[in-house]
Amino acid sequence: MTGLIQVVGGAVVDRLANPGALLVARRSAPEHLAGLWEFPGGKVEPGEEPETALVRELNEELGIGVHLGSELPANTLNGWPLNERASMRVWFAEVTRGEPLPLEDHDELRWVDLGDPEAVLALPWIPADYPIVHALLNAVACQLEQ
């Protein structure tokens, strides 16, 4: 055990095969993160599998059921570093039930066009999420080239 807080995030896309749009969520709290965009998700509970935690968190935060796709690989075994105490693992996810709504921790949801990487990167993301956004855009571009 590393002692790191394990967080999971969903790269919720319109479809897992050749995604064209990404669902992003704007934080409403805490104050220092309010107004910044992120991947929806949350903390893994003790004894909970990360994938199970992500499905639970997306249901709690957005009111949706999802089918998880592949994990977006990070450069570390623990996932993407968020700060000195936490790291995040991110999976692609497709909505299978419900309409996404900002139920907890967010005041706005938005579908962004993955075909316009500059527009995606122009959003004011939580700083720790920028490397993840870059990796996601690269992964989608590589998938489209295949």
Rank of each mutant, 00 (worst) to 15 (best):
Q6N: 04
V8E: 07
L16T: 05
G63A: 03
L36S: 05
E45T: 05
H67V: 06
T52I: 12
K43T: 12
V112C: 06
P127R: 11
P117H: 05
F92A: 10
Q143W: 13
P46G: 02
Y130H: 13
A29T: 08
L16Q: 02
V44W: 02
A29K: 11
G10T: 10
L121K: 15
R56N: 04
W91R: 02
E104D: 09
W80L: 11
I132C: 03
A25F: 08
I126Y: 06
E45S: 12
P117C: 05
V7R: 03
H134C: 13
H134K: 12
P117D: 03
L72P: 00
H32V: 13
W80N: 06
F39I: 10
H106R: 11
L72C: 04
I126W: 01
A74H: 09
L121H: 02
V44Y: 03
V55L: 00
L62Q: 00
W111V: 08
V13W: 06
R85G: 01
L62P: 00
G42V: 13
E108D: 14
N59D: 07
E108T: 14
D105L: 13
R110D: 09
L121Y: 01
L77F: 06
A122V: 11
A86E: 13
L22Y: 10
L23R: 00
F39P: 07
W80I: 10
L137H: 02
A21W: 13
M1K: 11
L123V: 10
L16R: 05
L82H: 01
N138W: 12
G35T: 07
L33P: 00
D14V: 10
S70W: 10
E99T: 11
R89A: 10
E118Y: 01
G3D: 12
L58P: 04
D129T: 10
L36V: 01
H67A: 13
I132P: 02
S70N: 08
W91V: 05
V133S: 02
P46S: 07
A74L: 08
V8F: 03
L109V: 05
P127E: 14
D105R: 15
S70Q: 14
E38I: 11
P40S: 12
D113Q: 14
H32M: 07
A122E: 14
W91E: 00
G65Q: 02
A135Q: 12
A17P: 00
G115L: 14
A11T: 12
E60S: 00
Q143P: 03
N59H: 15
H134S: 04
F39C: 09
E57C: 13
R110P: 10
A122W: 12
D129L: 10
A53V: 13
F92G: 04
L123W: 13
G63N: 01
N18W: 15
P127T: 06
A141S: 15
V13A: 06
L114P: 08
N75V: 11
P73T: 11
H106W: 09
H106P: 00
P124I: 01
A135G: 06
E49D: 11
L22T: 03
